[in-house]
């Protein structure tokens, strides 16, 4: 569905059903260079299991209009204001990768907007390989290729897509290739310059974190540093899974998500 916000149309996937405002709202925030479709294995399920999912396209991403936001702080301000505008009350906030940083900041800065926080592929810092950043700045295809190569566990490079006929690696690369020029660089630069500070300590709502044992982009060690800052957290490890856990292990993630959403 398309929603007008700040003079631009925002695209939101709701699981193929009308947004039911009587159900608990779940806002899902994608990672760098991506869009709502990274949640395609979860949104429709949630929509039929008692929730009102809203998988966002951030401004300038996917089918959303609007200028790119150059920092995680600005993205968080935009998401927080979007939640307020929707007037659905506090949401269950789910973020992946860059989306996890945005979600963290939203929950810390605008605590009235987030009832629960669920983070996937998260870390306190997300430094970006300089050659990846350079390729993204030059809008070279190498950027989607490197991100795809590093974002998947070893199994996903061979097989294992539970959706018959879909090939995970090209799925990720094609998604990134569809990003408009400068989108990937904007997002990677935002991740690269992000400093978490004491953000974890400022989170008041319940927090769940999911980490893949083969995640090369936010490795378990980096996730552990973030997790150490929360006063209370439910940490779930996914064995043999990489950074794109929603696609690599959709069944596990659906189950964990249902538990974490309450």
């Amino acid at each position: 569905m398309q929603i007008e916000f700040r003079d631009a149309m925002v695209n939101v996937a709701t699981g193929g059903v009308e947004l039911n405002k009587d159900l608990p709202p779940v806002l899902l925030v994608h990672g760098a260079g991506m869009d709502r479709t990274v949640w395609s294995q979860q949104t429709r399920y949630l929509a039929h299991h008692g929730f009102a999912p809203m998988a966002l396209d951030l401004p300038g991403h996917g089918d959303s209009e609007g200028a790119l936001l150059p920092s995680v702080a600005e993205m968080a301000e935009w998401v927080g204001a979007f939640i307020e505008m929707m007037a659905l009350g506090p949401v269950r906030l789910v973020g992946h990768s860059m989306g996890s940083l945005i979600s963290l900041e939203v929950a810390a800065r605008y605590p009235q907007t987030a009832e629960r926080l669920i983070l996937m592929g998260a870390a306190a810092a997300m430094p970006v390989h300089p050659e990846l950043l350079g390729a993204a700045e030059r809008n070279e295809i190498l950027a989607p290729q490197l991100m795809t190569a590093w974002a998947h566990g070893s199994r996903a490079h061979i097989a294992g897509n539970p959706t018959p006929g879909l090939w995970m690696r090209s799925g990720c690369q094609a998604l990134l290739e569809r990003a408009a020029p400068d989108v990937i660089y904007n997002d990677l630069a935002a991740c690269n310059s992000y400093e978490a500070g004491d953000v974890a300590a400022r989170i008041e709502c319940s927090v769940s974190v999911m980490v893949g044992s083969e995640d090369k982009m936010t490795p378990p060690k980096a996730t552990a540093q973030l997790v150490a800052g929360f006063s209370e957290v439910d940490l779930q490890h996914l064995d043999g899974i990489g950074h794109m856990m929603m696609m690599e292990a959709p069944d596990q993630i659906r189950d964990l998500l249902l538990q974490a959403l309450g």
């Binding site: 018959p164 006929g165 879909l166 090939w167 090209s170 690369q173 094609a174 959709p250």
Partner: peptide
């Protein structure tokens, strides 16, 4: 709502291996 096999007219695990392999060789998403 979730992936999997229902009936072999729509999908089948052996056929799915060939589908994934051909998508991989062509560089397609599916």
């Amino acid at each position: 709502e979730q992936p999997g096999h229902i009936y072999s007219r729509i999908s089948n695990p052996t056929v799915a291996v060939l589908e994934e392999r051909l998508a991989a060789l062509e560089g397609g998403v599916g």
